[in-house]
């Protein structure tokens, strides 16, 4: 078996960046599956690339011109949107305090 590309330390860093507070019981499974997927992806690095090939973002070219002017169009019933929020106050989304970073305070 090859070396785990995703070590427990790197895994913890990724989960932090991904804003996922994982419980211990799921960490080991997720890390093992990530390493399996990376083993499956390894063949990409061995494919001889054709010399003139350019990376693509779409298989098919996206339409040359947008079909309408890029102007915002307000949703007629904003109350219906805010009603979906887990918590709202006076027509606005409500959240707990934003965390302060020490480095910014100093």
């Amino acid at each position: 078996m090859g070396p785990d590309r995703i070590t427990p330390e790197l895994f913890d860093k990724l989960t932090s960046l991904a804003a996922l507070a994982l419980v211990e019981s799921e960490k080991e499974y997720l890390r093992a599956e990530l390493n399996h997927q990376l083993a499956a992806v390894r063949e990409l690095s061995e494919i001889p690339l054709e010399e003139d090939i350019l990376p693509t973002l779409h298989g098919l070219a996206i339409p040359p011109k947008p079909s309408r002017p890029d102007v915002s169009d307000a949703f007629p019933e904003p109350g219906k949107i805010v009603a979906q929020a887990p918590e709202s106050e006076e027509g606005m989304f409500a959240v707990p305090d934003v965390a302060h970073r020490k480095s910014e305070e100093e």
Partner: peptide, 24 residues
């Protein structure tokens, strides 16, 4: 305690295994 913790717990509890795997 703060917004970051809200994100981290909501995403951890709301997503199943497969979305977590794909995000990572």
């Amino acid at each position: 305690s703060d917004l970051n913790e809200l994100y981290r717990l909501s995403r951890a509890e709301g997503f199943g295994t497969e979305p977590k795997l794909r995000i990572l």
